[in-house]
């Protein structure tokens, strides 16, 4: 891809020279557990960043608290490891006051959906120019294994020895409900797919929400195994492609159709034909299509779509904020402090 593929970054200064993945690595020892899915995501992000062609010093990673939130320490950019759940709020202040920055938020299912759920939905509805990567491992890792807001009902954990009573959040449905303009999902182990989703997120101007299924091999190992195991993955994974009919399986033998009741129904292409296949359109202004897709998979992960669910244009918060300032200066002139302080009702004492 060339620089022109990222018009979303037009306000960010370009890199003075081409960069490599190693330029984005820091000298800090990476301290995730051996075998953690975070390593793969870190490697994917580090190798993808040079593609953006922007100055490294104008890139900022902001995170909250949790295993995933250690991410900024390992990126040789500017970065802030903040407090639990607040990264979207902090990043909103940074992005909306500095349009020359590419601001990324790294969060997890506990950080982003539990303690920080409010900030996440409000950043998305405002459409702040943030790229939000939510590492979903369906467990609390850093606090050593309690159920998270994406854990399945009945999950046995340290804090739920008799099974969790909480119905899980569907992160993509939540993001779509908050009117997110860009919603996507990928998997830690699929470097190529993850990179393609990061690329699409970076190309989007406004909030981009990317859920990344991430394996916690210590407290919730193999949570996404059906999507990884060669025996099952083709039947479980639906790869969404812009403008293409939605079909999957080793030989693309399954397809998605509209049922007579107007819901979605899976069928065999050999039986139902190609003509009736549902075509994926992430640019549809109506979020219903993306929402339907987000509801397709159940907790067993059967029929899990990955890829870009939704990518639509809507005015960006930072742009509008900046426009208001420019407009005020254009119509009223630059502010004059002495005039402001004097106001309109004064009197003078000699």
């Amino acid at each position: 891809m060339s620089e022109s593929d990222f018009p979303s970054l037009r306000l960010v200064p370009k890199a003075r020279e081409p960069q490599k993945a190693k330029d984005f690595k820091t000298d800090q020892e990476v301290r995730w557990c051996p075998g953690c899915g975070d390593y793969a995501i870190l490697a994917a992000v580090q190798s993808f960043m040079p593609e953006l062609g922007i100055a490294r010093e104008n890139t900022v990673f902001v995170s909250g608290i949790g295993c995933s939130s250690r991410f900024p320490y390992y990126m040789n950019t500017y970065g802030m490891h903040s407090i639990h759940g607040r990264a979207p709020a902090i990043a909103t202040g940074l992005a909306s006051s500095r349009q020359d920055l590419s601001v990324w938020v790294v969060t997890g299912d506990g950080d982003g959906l539990s303690i920080g759920g409010n900030h996440l939905i409000h950043a998305l509805r405002r459409n702040v120019n943030l790229k939000i990567l939510l590492f979903n491992n369906r467990i609390y890792g850093l606090t050593k294994g309690q159920y998270s807001p994406t854990s399945e009902l009945g999950k046995i954990t340290k804090s739920t020895p008799f099974g969790s009573l909480d119905a899980p959040f569907n992160p993509l449905s939540l993001a779509l409900g908050a009117d997110a303009t860009f919603v996507a999902r990928s998997i830690d182990s699929d470097r190529k797919h993850l990179t393609s989703v990061l690329r699409a997120a970076a190309a989007h101007r406004g909030s981009a929400f990317v859920e990344i299924y991430q394996n916690c091999n210590i407290f919730n190992d193999e949570a996404f195994e059906p999507l990884k195991d060669p025996a099952t993955r083709d039947d479980f994974t639906i790869r969404l492609e812009d403008g293409a009919p939605i079909r999957w399986g080793a030989n693309a033998e399954h397809g998605l159709y509209r049922s007579p009741g107007n819901g979605l129904v899976a069928g065999e292409v050999a039986e139902q034909g190609e003509a009736g296949l549902l075509v994926h359109d992430p640019h549809n202004d109506d979020p219903s299509h993306a929402f339907e897709l987000s509801r397709l998979a159940d907790i067993s992960l059967a029929r899990t779509p990955i890829g870009v669910f939704r990518a639509v244009d809507r005015p960006v918060y930072d742009d509008m904020m900046s426009d208001q300032l420019d407009k005020a200066r254009a119509t009223q002139g630059e502010g004059d402090l002495a005039t402001l302080l004097a106001g309109s009702d004064t009197w003078t004492i000699d």
Partner: peptide, 20 residues
């Protein structure tokens, strides 16, 4: 920036402080 809550209000301010 009229934030969604008091925490976001100070968070956004701190983010802006980081940005100068």
């Amino acid at each position: 920036f009229q934030a969604e809550d008091e925490i976001a209000a100070v968070g956004a301010a701190l983010g802006a402080a980081y940005g100068g």
